[in-house]
Design a protein around this nucleic acid. Structure first.
Lengths: 153, 153
DNA sequence: CTATGTGCAAAGATTTTGCCCATAT
DNA sequence: ATATGGGCAAAATCTTTGCACATAG
């Protein structure tokens, strides 16, 4: 109850209100390690608040992003994904199944170097994304080898 | 004419054909340092081929991306942008005007470190994006200070 | 000649928004 | 009490796709 109270207060401090919907969206996003899309998050939250509408999820994700309670992850050819870990950290995305995982690494070195190159800019953050095939898809593709199926090109 | 011939051959080697539209799209993208959206690219190419359709631009960008002739840049809250420089390199994006510029830096150091963390993955590339305010927008906002206008929050 | 590509327009997918009612503060 | 937020549905935005015709190889 303490963490919940703290969160409500943080939200209230920004001049916004902590509603049941907003809390559920935030809690749900914080409770998963995958990085769901708005539609996926809507499906999850719907199990808690049956009547919630997709518009509310989208609206809240945008608000929560502006307030830096969540962060967007944009990947090629897929809807935006969301992350409740707002600190800059790299992601790895599987180009086969589209899953996104956190990479436990702070690439400070190159960031500092880049900052030197970007003279005149006021840098606020960065995002690093690795592309590749996840272990799961690698083993699947080995099991299926010979099959003419799947989005392999 | 040589470069054009080489390009056509590269395309033909992949089993696709080099059409007037495809060439114009590729040339246009290669000739600009900004990173246009599909819609912006459509407007540019339209000055050369009046009757080209947006669908053709989208279709070609997808094909050219699969063939690794172009690369996507996905940024929060904006349509996908395209880059004819396919080699991995960082971008910086202005969160005020949305412009995207190249950063002349190869962050190899942190990439190697990250590869060690991603055991079991088959990494194919990475993308690094810095977020901030570009010099242009900084000077504009200083000139306008006091005005209650613009997307500043 | 024929597989690939184009134009067009319709459809799809994702996200935003206006309106009116509900509710947190 | 009242400003902020939610539900709903329409709309806006971005992108893909089916079809008939055109064209590169």
């Amino acid at each position: 109850m303490d963490a919940t109270e703290d969160l409500s207060k943080s939200i209230r401090d920004t001049g916004r209100r902590m509603t049941r919907q907003r809390r559920a969206i935030l809690h749900t996003l914080e409770s998963v390690t995958c990085h769901p899309t708005a539609a996926e998050l809507y499906e999850m939250v719907r199990r808690e608040i049956a009547g919630i509408s997709p518009g509310t999820v989208y609206r809240n994700l945008n608000v929560l992003q502006e307030l830096s309670f969540v962060r967007e992850i944009r990947t090629a050819g897929e809807p935006t994904r969301y992350d409740a870990r707002v600190q800059d950290h790299p992601h790895a995305r599987c180009s086969n199944c589209g899953c996104v995982v956190d990479v436990p690494l702070e690439p400070d070195v190159c960031i500092d170097e880049a900052a030197d190159e970007l003279v005149g800019w006021q840098l606020t953050g960065y995002s690093v994304q690795f592309d590749g095939i996840c272990p799961n898809c690698i083993s699947k593709s080995q099991a299926e080898k010979g099959d003419s199926e799947g989005p392999w090109i």
